[in-house]
Design a protein around this nucleic acid. Structure first.
Lengths: 248, 248
DNA sequence: TCAAAAGTGTTTGCTTTACACCCATGT
DNA sequence: ACATGGGTGTAAAGCAAACACTTTTGA
């Protein structure tokens, strides 16, 4: 978990860009996966003045670690906090910011002026993080005049800025390879959940089906779950047990 | 494999630092593991004027990708090329370059002058790569007056600059988790090798022992090896087969 | 009493591990 | 002949997949 320090928010973006508050040529991006029912989605943002969608991210303060910058920029743009953010790759090709770069358009529409050869118009490298959350929990996305937040199916991404489509796809690959109980147990499910919910979660993320009984045996053998009371839903079938993750 | 483009070498370091040839605040580092007999080593460099050892690395040109910068800086400092370099983590804490920073000492001894608040004295982030080679192949390390190259056991590292000990340790963790036939088959063994050599390689890197026959069955079942002629060593025992990796 | 969905047990088959034996080679 | 190390076969153990049956619940 990362603590968000937003003491820097008092400075405007223009001030920050012009007073060298940021580390030049460096950014962070966060791929936030949302899970609900049987769908895996990704959280994207779009500036109203710009055609293309981005993953939440931003620049890094000179006295701020990459990890902290990821947590902070995510919070500023989505109000999500205390997520289990994990670094997965740093994108550093030369031309990754050349195509579909919304910066000029954005700064112009904000009436911000920076030097025409300011580094934000040039090449910069970006370290990418990912996290998983349950997207049915009602998040109050910040109400700014600049941008809008929305969930997209990972199978049906819109036109995206920069190389952000590549970032999302690589994040998804990484997630599938590194899906473990730390990730799943962190933000994805409510505190109490049924075995079927856990199974659907795995099936959705990994894109494959498991057998009910074998899945249960496997997951219980890891001794990471505690069985709780039964859940009576009112439906005409046996009530399933609820479980919760044990702290290790 | 990465192609090395050293057209930039004509500019001196001082010129590069002062003419903004580099991307500010960004560097790359390469953890080169060497394998021989039953030892896993790591290649380190030391400037003569500086007490502490570093992994080979350097700064990134403005028109150069991170991957290319890793290959280039490695080549410049060790003359190693065509290695299978793989990115594994980006180190971005605020104070990682504060401690044991050899830059002032180094530039002074080189009689290079840069602005006292030049970014190389400040914080910078570093993307780390690793590769594996057979360190018995005689490498002609470049003969510079500035630095010396040497192999160190991963279990017995010397005093290191910056956070490079942490980088080596994380690289080793990553290597052990991601040891596959692409890595092993790339630079580690001679073209023809015995099953025992391959087994020793795995045992050395992973730090555990396997049974001769079971290891052989497992590795042959992957259909990645081609059996060649026998190797007569002159010793009083059955001659082992040689193998080579199949191109996939 | 029935359908739906969850819980639990058992059988089967495969992969990994362990043990055993045989073969080639130079002294 | 014999010691040394490599090649190969087989039994035992462990794990995962598939299948079958029982239990609970509300209509």
């Amino acid at each position: 978990m990362m603590k968000v320090d937003d003491s820097k928010n008092k400075l405007s973006l223009a001030e920050l860009l012009n007073t060298k508050g940021f580390v030049e040529h460096v950014s962070v991006d966060c791929v936030i996966f949302g899970f609900n029912k049987d769908e895996l989605k990704v959280l994207l943002l779009k500036y109203h003045e710009v055609d293309r969608w981005s993953v939440p991210g931003g620049f890094v303060f000179k006295d701020e670690s990459l990890d902290d910058a990821a947590a902070r920029t995510l919070y500023e743009r989505t109000h999500l906090e205390n997520l289990f953010l994990q670094q997965f790759y740093t994108f550093g090709s030369v031309n990754r910011t050349d195509e579909n770069n919304p910066h000029r358009q954005l700064l112009k529409s904000l009436n911000l002026t920076v030097d025409p050869d300011h580094w934000i118009y040039q090449r910069f490298i970006s370290t990418a993080y990912f996290a998983l959350i349950d997207f049915t929990i009602s998040h109050t996305f910040p109400d700014t005049n600049n941008e809008v937040c929305a969930w997209f199916s990972v199978d049906d991404l819109p036109e995206m800025a920069f190389d952000h489509e590549k970032i999302v796809k690589k994040g998804l690959d990484f997630l599938r390879l590194n899906l473990d109980y730390n990730v799943v147990g962190s933000n994805l499910l409510p505190e109490k959940f049924t075995m079927k919910e856990l199974q659907t979660l795995y099936e959705t993320i990994l894109g494959e089906k498991f057998r009910r009984n074998n899945f249960q045996r496997k997951v219980l053998s890891l001794n990471m779950l505690q069985r709780l009371e039964k859940l009576y839903t009112g439906s005409a079938n046996k009530a399933p047990y609820l479980y919760k993750f044990l702290k290790k």
